[in-house]
């Protein structure tokens, strides 16, 4: 009997430990949920215009003037992100060429563990036309569950300023057109 109670205690301790580890590790952005609270530094003039934001210092993603924001979590050092770059550029072009989508869908990239210089290297190497932001100290990366790269998050921005994650998935997308259809369906555009 005593043995059983010792065993029970061990299980109890393990459960506690489990709970601790799980709560310490931030979860990946859940579909249906909201983004964790983080800010991005205010970009240059052209990017501000594209995102429809103003002011100085920093901003939050739901402030972007759009119905859907597609966030690519990438790294200059990630071979899959390098391979995916032309596809994401193509997605941007398709959105920009469609008068119905141009103002509704915006794309940004967040370079995890990349310095601003490294983000800039990636931007120049692949002629990335949309705004890229640096997360040099992995602080955003930690808040989004330390996802592997590339990782795409679709955020629907509601007219009242609230927002909702509609897409959250690891890996590149299969086919630019298919991805755009999925995004439109999930965001009701």
């Amino acid at each position: 009997m005593r043995k059983i109670s010792i065993c029970g205690l061990a299980v109890f301790a393990t459960v506690l430990l489990c709970a601790c580890v799980i709560s310490m590790a931030e979860a990946q952005p859940p579909v249906g949920g909201v983004l964790p609270d983080f800010k991005l530094s205010m970009p240059g003039f052209a990017d501000k215009g594209y995102l429809g934001i103003s002011g100085f210092g920093s901003f939050r993603i739901p402030e972007i003037k759009a119905k859907l924001v597609i966030i690519e979590i990438f790294s200059m050092y990630c071979p899959f992100c390098q391979r995916e770059a032309p596809n994401v550029n193509q997605l941007y072009e398709k959105i920009q060429q469609d008068p119905g989508l141009r103002d509704a869908i915006k794309i940004i990239g967040i370079g995890v563990g990349n310095s601003p210089y490294e983000v800039d290297v990636f931007k120049k190497r692949y002629n990335v036309p949309f705004p890229l932001f640096a997360d040099g100290d992995y602080s955003i990366h930690k808040k989004i569950g330390e996802v592997r790269t590339p990782y795409f998050i679709g955020v629907k921005i509601n007219p009242d300023g609230s927002h909702q994650i509609v897409y959250s998935k690891l890996g590149g997308f299969e086919g630019v057109d298919q991805f755009l259809v999925t995004m439109r369906r999930l965001s009701g555009l």
Binding site: V21, A25, C78, C81, V112, G113, E146
Partner: peptide, 17 residues
């Protein structure tokens, strides 16, 4: 439970897929 714990261990370092 130990299995579950490992399942929830995060991938650090911004590792490429």
């Amino acid at each position: 439970m130990i299995g579950v714990m490992f399942l929830f261990m995060p991938d650090a370092y911004g590792l490429s897929d």
